[in-house]
Design a protein around this nucleic acid. Sequence first.
DNA 1: GCTTATCCGGAAAGCTTTTCCGTATAGTTA
DNA 2: TAACTATACGGAAAAGCTTTCCGGATAAGC
Lengths: 201, 201
Amino acid sequence: MSDNTAESTARERAPRRMRTDARRNVEALLEAAKTVFSAAGVDAPAKEITDLAGVGVGTLYRHFPQRSDLIKAVIEREIDACADAAPALAAAHEPGIALARWLDRFTAFVATKRGFAAALHSGDPAFDGLPGYLMQKLGPALESLLEAATASGEIQTRISAQDLLYAVAKLCAPMPNEDPDYGRRMVALLVDGLRSGESPH
Amino acid sequence: MSDNTAESTARERAPRRMRTDARRNVEALLEAAKTVFSAAGVDAPAKEITDLAGVGVGTLYRHFPQRSDLIKAVIEREIDACADAAPALAAAHEPGIALARWLDRFTAFVATKRGFAAALHSGDPAFDGLPGYLMQKLGPALESLLEAATASGEIQTRISAQDLLYAVAKLCAPMPNEDPDYGRRMVALLVDGLRSGESPH
DNA sequence: GCTTATCCGGAAAGCTTTTCCGTATAGTTA
DNA sequence: TAACTATACGGAAAAGCTTTCCGGATAAGC
């Protein structure tokens, strides 16, 4: 560990870093995939994605050997974005508000990205790591928000971050022909349950 | 329209009833599909199903023009079985017990049949009718159980049959690597919330 | 037993994903 | 700057799955 390779700890044998064109293509693919998945669902043909990204299919499959790898990468990237939103909210609002806002943000993610629910319930072992990733990234974020709100007396913690995270993830996953407010309503019920008083008649 | 067509009321123009070999094949296909879906998931190749059923692919696709039609049929059939369980439970147990037992039955269905969650969240419009079917078949069943339990004073109805049905369906949908008791625990939380008293400390 | 509407099986067509490999190029060294 | 090489690219071809098609079989009615 002399100088430039900051993280040559032992973890990764990775010899050299990626060529810049390769890096650019990966980026373009992820962006294109996000767009196409939103428009046409995660089952959209790979061709559509490569065309939009302006690369050949070979390039797609070199970086993401399985179709599921691409889906996984897109989802993980959106989970990261969700986690990154927490500190800013915590800094800008009172604990109770910050918690509510962040839950809104997370709810929107789950409700909007159909691909997430589809992947989770697909049964494909390729996605088995996703709940773990979610927990690992979002668990601490939610936990710190919960703790702050508890400390300020705005809520009583009666549920673990993990249980709450999963409950929201499941309740807000969109079902066809569903009242679009169902998820939000159920989460509100849950969160109301956390406020100090009794149940709201 | 002279005599023999016993039910020429106006409802159905259906000229004659299905040939017996056709009926038998449909039955065999549904049974085989149920087995294969359980073992290998709903994405298992059609060939596996037709082989197990002992028919050609042509036969499969005549009766179920789209792959999704077969999945839909298998799921609807299991929903029916769930609905049919309600009257027997209501007759055999006190209202509160009957309700709990039926929710167990429903929970087991949702938790066990991965195909159900997969279909619901797939985004494929072919499955858009499924929540409606669920509600139509299971709504009345649950509603009568809820009413009986409310009438006998065992619970206070604070949630509609529809909301409860969907909440259970969503909370119990299995996620990979999840505590296998998570769903049951969450449903217990919900049902406890319906009992007359306050929240159980 | 004969007729005919209905159904069957599996070959082939149509798509999508995934592999493969000759060609192109970024990065490096002199 | 020029040459060299490891790395990456593109798209044709292979592989696998779903869906269509149709000549041949057969249950149902007379």
